[in-house]
Computed example of a mutant assay.
Amino acid sequence: MRIVIIGVGEVGFHVAKALSQEDHDIIVMDVDPSKCKRATESLDVIVVEGNGASPRILSMANVQDADYVLCLTRVDEVNLIASQQAHELGAKKIIARLRNQQYTTRDSIIKPEKFGIDLVIHPEKEACSEIVQLVRHSYATQVMDFEGGRIQMIGIRLDMDSPIIGKTVREICDEELEFKFGIITVLRDGESHVPWSDYEFKENDTAYFIVKTKSLESLMVYLGKEATKTNSIVILGGSKIGRSVAQELENEMSVRLIDNRRDKAEWLASNLKETMIIHGDGTDVELLKSENIKDADSFITVTESEQTNLLSGMLAHHLGVKQTVIHVSTT
């Protein structure tokens, strides 16, 4: 396939890297010469330096022949205009990254489909959804819903006491269980493996299963995992992601949110009715101790500073929190 990627920041760069390894014809463009230089030196792609919202630059990239155009700059308005231009020039499918979720609300004046966009991705919304799933399933490394939540794909790290350690896929299939599940892939030492019938599971494998949601608890028992319910979480950072996670979970469990800005903390307190808002520094060990962080089921760091997220996450882990979720945008 021929794919044009507009915007070669962290997201665009790694999307281009992944797609170029699958033998697609990739063209990337960006107005920033340093980002273009990085792509030229590191990726097997064609690089076009220029404004992705310009019809002339898009024509230079032969966007009219593209199977997909991915608009991934950090500016929503640029992505909208670039999508519209690519659509007018004849691109087959257009995917746009939009940070402002109001564009896809029912009463929005500006509709993405009017710009020729086939699929909208809200990065903060996607991050929130993944964090919420991980909190609800703290025993998993990854969770995805299918068929409206009736089926789940779940990643489980196999501990040394897991009953399936040393068993092959054939032996597992031969067991008479009261429920059915599929084994999709296994991650071992950083490499993915398709588990054929003679594949033997080992300690520290991360296995990915697909199962009906109603049978998930039975699968966890079979794998030797305790499907414990999350009752208490602490969120560091009143960012868009932090607010969204709190709103999603505050009626299910105890939620505390820490922010170091007093004005934002006051605003959060007036808008998140069921969440306890704490004004303070999440990297302050004494503050974390005073909040009994060791008793929390999950500690989620989603500030705008990656350094703060990493440091506070490590501190919380050291203090004994059961699960730590750290938001990092730079890979």
Rank of each mutant, 00 (worst) to 15 (best):
F299Y: 15
E286Y: 09
H317A: 09
F115S: 11
V325M: 12
V31E: 15
F209N: 07
E252T: 12
G50L: 07
V48W: 05
S239D: 08
R97E: 09
H318Q: 14
T168Q: 05
E191F: 09
R106P: 00
G282H: 03
F115C: 10
T301C: 13
I183F: 04
A246G: 07
S244F: 08
T331G: 10
T230E: 05
A227V: 01
R2I: 05
D281E: 06
Q21F: 05
T168H: 07
K264N: 14
H327G: 07
A66L: 03
M60P: 00
T303H: 02
L72Y: 03
I300D: 02
I258W: 08
R56W: 04
Y68C: 00
A39S: 12
R188N: 14
K225G: 06
P123I: 12
I293S: 07
T324K: 04
Q85P: 00
S20A: 15
A269R: 11
A227W: 08
T185D: 05
I5V: 14
D198T: 09
D159N: 14
A86E: 09
Q133D: 13
S197R: 05
D189C: 04
A265Q: 08
P112A: 12
P195S: 10
N251T: 13
K35W: 08
H327N: 13
R243V: 14
